[in-house]
Design a protein around this nucleic acid. Structure first.
Length: 381
DNA sequence: ATTTGGCGAGACTGTTCCCA
DNA sequence: TGGGAACAGTCTCGCCAAAT
């Protein structure tokens, strides 16, 4: 690996003019690789300059290498800066460059947004007593992980607002958001084996890469094209329609974050697989049940047993699942001055009643998963 | 017609070497 | 010694032919 020893020839360097031109092009291309034709044209152009003509022929590969190195250098530099700010480069608000590493590769240390840091088996709502939240920013209609609930207030309409600190962002990015509409349990990044839980009709959180920004938006799954999994993982494709702009796109699983409400599907599948495996030893290791219309219908029927496909933090719903372990977690956001407010709504913002804390001196946000334990998120006043 | 697997291009990341 | 140039390994993804 690396550069081989030179054969004694003169070393090549791009001059300032050439570098400036390539930097301009790189900037114009939003730090992405220009087309091959452009690289060839650049190489020819540089070769035709008075300085080089007849002396040195600039190869397209050299131009290509320069772009590769410069892009890598820029990324490395920006990640260093972000590291100093304790901000993950995964944060779409900070780095609008398309991010490819959501479900793959080493994850950043600082609060990765929607990056799977633990196995899905440990992420299930029913197994994780301290839930995480995401909030919808009013600035760009995108969803971000919530680091802290800092404060709360009430609008004249009676709707509770909370002041949130977005994960990886500073106080200047704090926003008041409506708890009813714009706060909900954090969406879960999908691992390869979890594509079966993403079905047409689902609301998902989808990573939309635009020219200037790449953010997580709500989207509806219109169709799912199932493909066989291999060593590369899930190769399925999902046709989605973004809620905010109604645009449609075919996306791979890695761009999809499913809603926690679909956890029960995985539980069901695991239960079924365990049962079937006991009966059928020769069964394939990986099954893609959604290729079957029957399976889709089965899941959709199961969906119908739940009150709402969208599960907001404040949503009032009545789980009707027959088996208690498959019920969605009943969830409350509690803002209190040392008090813990349960689903009873006596003093907290709850899923059902949206009642409020009367006094708020030291704010803590407490999550109560379906009768579960309590975790506190330290906050401001 | 659909699914599957292979292949190649491109992207990304990291290393090595050279020279000012 | 640091910056720049060159290149290799790995991964992703689209395309296409073969298989079902």
């Amino acid at each position: 690996m690396g550069r081989p020893p030179s054969n004694g020839g003169p070393s090549f360097r791009f001059n300032q003019t050439e570098v400036a031109e390539m930097e301009t092009i790189l900037h114009q291309h939003n730090n992405t690789m220009p087309a091959r034709e452009l690289l060839v044209a650049l190489a020819e152009k540089f070769s035709e300059t008075a300085e080089r003509k007849g002396k040195f022929q600039v190869q397209m590969k050299q131009v290509w290498n320069w772009f590769q190195n410069r892009r890598y250098a820029i990324r490395a530099k920006s990640s260093k800066v972000l590291g100093k700010l304790n901000v993950s480069p995964m944060m779409p608000r900070v780095d609008s460059t398309p991010v490819r590493t959501v479900p793959q590769g080493p994850q950043p240390i600082a609060a990765p947004i929607h990056a799977p840091s633990v196995p899905s088996s440990a992420r299930g709502a029913s197994e994780n007593p301290i839930l995480e939240f995401e909030a919808k920013s009013g600035r760009d209609a995108a969803w971000y992980d919530v680091a802290n609930f800092l404060s709360h207030r009430h609008l004249e309409s009676g709707d509770p607002d909370v002041l949130v600190r977005f994960a990886g962002f500073g106080p200047e990015e704090d926003e008041w958001v409506n708890v009813r509409k714009h706060v909900r349990q954090r969406s879960l990044p999908c691992e390869s084996s979890e594509c079966v839980a993403v079905l047409p009709g689902d609301l998902i959180l989808c990573f939309q890469e635009g020219k200037e920004q790449a953010l997580y938006f709500d989207a509806n799954v219109l169709d799912a094209q199932r493909r066989r999994h291999d060593v590369r993982g899930c190769r399925c494709r999902f046709l989605v329609r973004y809620v905010h702009d109604q645009s449609e796109e075919i996306v791979p699983l890695r761009k999809v974050c499913r809603r926690p409400e679909t956890d029960y599907r995985l539980h069901q599948l695991h239960a079924e697989n365990n049962t079937t495996a006991a009966e059928q030893k020769s069964m394939d290791h990986f099954k893609v049940p959604a290729t079957s219309a029957e399976m889709i219908q089965k899941q959709q029927n199961a969906d119908a047993a739940f009150a709402s496909p969208v599960f907001h933090a404040n949503a009032s719903f009545a789980p009707q699942a027959s088996t208690p372990e498959l019920r969605k977690p009943e969830m409350s956001i509690v803002l209190s001055a040392g008090n813990t407010c349960g689903p009873s709504g006596s003093a907290g913002v709850t899923s059902g009643s949206a009642t409020s804390c009367a006094v708020l001196t030291s704010c803590t946000a407490t999550v109560l998963p379906h009768g579960g334990s309590v975790g506190n998120i330290p906050g401001g006043n």
